[in-house]
Design a protein around this nucleic acid. Structure first.
Length: 717
DNA sequence: TCGAATTCCGTTTTT
DNA sequence: CGGAATTCGA
């Protein structure tokens, strides 16, 4: 291999790229050129004469897939190689082998809100109470089972206790409801594809021989289903190249299992292991902090980050009065950076939860700093978008009752709840789909002639549209928008309607883009593709706007200047992340991911008060702050004790008057107390600071809060 | 049947 | 506190 593109690589990278055949594991720290190894390897394989058609690269997000296609293209490996996420790959497999997998190729992909509707119905069908079986919890349990490839039949043998028995009933019913509607949820995509490959040797062999080389990025975040799918996929050749970093595993809550990467050599005993420990991304200052932090994790293989960059950077911890002061200070610093010539695209702000973007957005607007919030879903969640998509789904898959119920009276056409309920009853009695029921509307009892005519008219609209659904998608979407009557309704709805129309126009242009870049565009394929898209995929690094995103969304990105806000106990680590060490370690990895996105400067901050859901609470600094390194936190505390810490932003907080000059009541750990909103709880800790005393209470609801005594209004029980 | 009002619900991270 | 689902009244 004398190719020029190999010369940019370090010896270790080159070793990985030029590995010929057999299993290969690349253990690589942040900023070590992981993804580059994959793109170069794709190019190298093609260089050796492997057909692009025989290469399958799997990334974590659609965005990453798109980027990889471009980069591989730039190396001359353009076109042909299959580069996508696990989920997209599974969609393709399930569509091609629909019969063998036991699904209809026009299946709808059900997102979370669709899932909630189905699971609620399943819970009701099983005569269980939604109060005792919260849909969210049940869905979580079902998801966990699916991620472990436990289908209802398999689960039947394991379900022993009462809860498992009930769960089994609901799970079985839920799957039946989905099957009736030709619907698959995200987890089904993985489970059905994996079980298909494991259970059908012909399909397995065919796919394994098609994809002679499989490359997987972010392997530390694969779950059990993905692992089993991978094993089946490479079973006839073991040409797997897995790339990842156990320290950057941040999706345990979604079933990701680091054992997949840690036990790689057990799964493939003849694996070649290459380690990449040089870091080309960050300054030594940033890496020292990252190193110190992640070293606290006990459940980990030790690894150091070796800096390559020689110029210096700044790492700072700041603290502010509250979230608004914090947001304004960040906006001001960003403003200064931009004024000094830094591009907005080299600045990012990370936070733990999406809700924290609010204060930032207000501050950025105030400072007139252009920004973009990189957030999950959003665009595809807008009402008007969902409406149009529901029409498309019904046309493609008339069994999709969720979509059908959404549009049957949207726009309003005089088909009310009573009518729909009658039709549903009729369909259930005669074991037919809702759409078939209204198609034969005459057979439904108790409907007036006028209502029957309205239903027949609706069926005609759908049938009429369905006749020319072939070919390009964009013109069809436009037609649906018109014929459905949605356009007319929105256009006569004033300002808001106008916004909605513009959103639909944007949808049509994304459909046009799909038509452009897809060989055989089809409505089914389009719907199944966009179901797997998130707004993080829409992040546009080419514009000059500062990026605001969650720490999770930051994965895989890098910026010269990084701000991480809200380093407070309960936020990072998040209170809902549980008390056990495993969860805490994942929160630490999350911060580690954030820290290692910074190429040069890193500004971490926390606030002394934060308003969460209308409650202003005294915060406790995150324990992670102290782990980042000695000195950093001390500097921050000195700043805090300065009398004029934030002269530009005078305190807005009205200090609640100490109760009639009385001495603040004392609490001792163990004391039982009652709070207006949180209910009963037990005092865990009491910090006596006079009127500013802080009580840490573990409430019976399971959550632990630290409350400012003078605001909390606690009653001894 | 429809739109407005009200209650009630939950509230991490996302393919 | 804010959004969604449900109920209520026209």
């Amino acid at each position: 291999m004398q190719e020029a593109f190999l010369e940019q690589l370090t010896p270790s990278q080159r070793q990985a790229v030029c590995h010929r055949e057999g299993p290969l594991l690349v253990l690589a720290g942040p900023g070590s050129g992981k993804t580059r190894v994959i793109t170069h390897r794709i190019a190298a394989l093609i260089d050796w004469g492997v057909k692009p058609y025989n290469i399958c690269a799997i990334t974590f997000t659609n965005k990453a897939a798109e980027e990889m296609r471009q980069r591989a293209g730039a190396l001359g490996a353009s076109g042909g190689a299959h580069i996508s996420t696990f989920h997209s790959l599974c969609v393709r497999i399930l569509r091609i082998y629909a019969d063998a997998a036991g699904v209809h190729p026009n299946f709808s992909i059900y997102d979370e809100s669709d899932q909630v509707r189905c699971i609620k119905e399943a819970i009701r069908n099983c005569d269980l109470d939604v109060a005792n079986f919260p849909p969210g919890r049940i869905l979580e349990a079902v998801s966990t089972l699916k991620n472990k490839l436990v289908d209802p039949d398999t689960f039947r043998a394991q379900a022993e206790d009462f809860f498992s028995q009930s769960l089994l009933q609901v799970y079985t019913r839920y799957q039946q409801i989905l099957a009736d509607r030709n619907g698959l949820d995200f987890d089904d995509l993985l489970m059905k594809a994996a079980l298909l490959l494991e259970g059908n040797s012909a399909v397995c062999r065919e796919l394994s021989e098609r994809f002679k080389f499989v490359l997987i990025d972010e392997y530390q975040d694969t779950n059990h289903a993905q692992h089993r799918l991978t094993r089946a996929l490479v079973s006839s050749h073991n040409n797997i190249c897995a790339v990842g970093d156990p320290d950057q595993s941040i999706y345990r809550w979604r079933g990701a299992d680091t054992r997949n990467i840690l036990a790689f050599e057990k799964d493939w005993p003849d694996a070649t292991v290459v380690k990449l420990e040089e870091n080309f991304r960050s300054t030594a200052e940033v890496l020292r902090v990252a190193d110190r932090l992640i070293a606290r994790n006990r459940n980990r293989k030790e690894k150091v980050l070796v800096p390559v960059k020689t110029h210096t950077g700044e790492v700072r911890i700041d603290n502010y009065e509250d979230e608004n002061a914090e947001a304004r200070a960040v906006a001001r610093q960003v403003e200064e950076l931009v004024a000094s010539g830094v591009s907005g695209s080299e600045i990012a702000v990370f936070y733990r939860v999406n809700a924290m973007s609010r204060a930032l957005e207000e501050a950025f607007i105030l400072h007139k700093v252009p920004y973009q919030v990189v957030r999950g879903v959003e665009f595809y969640n807008r009402k008007e978008i969902r409406d149009v998509l529901a029409y498309l789904k019904v046309i493609v898959n008339p069994a999709d009752e969720i979509a059908l119920q959404r549009i049957i009276n949207t726009p309003a056409r005089g088909i009310g709840k009573v009518t729909v309920d009658r039709a549903i009853m009729h369909a259930a009695r005669n074991r037919m789909s809702l759409f078939d029921a209204i198609r034969n509307v005459d057979q439904i009892d108790g409907l007036s002639g006028a209502v029957k005519a309205k239903l027949a008219a609706f069926v005609q609209v759908i049938d009429g549209l369905a006749q020319n659904m072939q070919g390009k998608v964009a013109p069809f979407v436009e037609r649906v928008f018109k014929v459905s009557g949605l356009e007319e309704t929105l256009k006569s709805a004033g300002r808001e309607g106008q916004d909605a129309v513009e959103n639909i126009e944007e949808l049509i242009s994304t459909a046009a883009a799909y038509d452009e870049q897809t060989e055989n565009p089809s409505l089914v394929d389009y719907l199944q593709q966009i179901a797997l898209f998130s707004d993080a995929d829409a992040y546009d690094a080419s514009n000059e706007r500062v990026a605001l995103m969650t720490l999770h969304a930051a994965k895989g990105l890098e910026f010269e200047n990084v701000f991480i806000i809200g380093l407070e106990h309960g936020i990072l680590p998040h209170e809902r992340s549980g008390e056990n060490g495993e969860d805490l370690e994942e929160e630490r990895r999350l911060l580690f991911v954030g820290v290692t996105r910074a190429k040069t400067n890193l500004y971490i901050s926390y606030a002394r008060y934060r308003t969460v859901r209308g409650q202003t609470l005294r915060t406790i600094p995150s324990e992670f702050l102290f782990e980042l390194g000695p000195g950093l936190m001390r500097a921050s505390v000195e700043q805090e004790s300065r009398p004029t810490a934030e002269p530009a932003f005078p305190k807005a907080k009205p200090a609640p008057s100490p109760s009639n000059g009385q001495k603040a009541p004392q609490f001792v750990p163990g004391q039982l107390v009652r709070h207006k909103t949180f209910g009963l709880g037990r005092v865990k800790k009491f910090r006596d600071m006079g009127p500013d005393s802080v009580v840490v209470i573990s409430f019976n609801s399971g959550q632990t809060k630290s409350l400012l005594l003078k605001c909390a209004d606690l009653v001894r029980v």
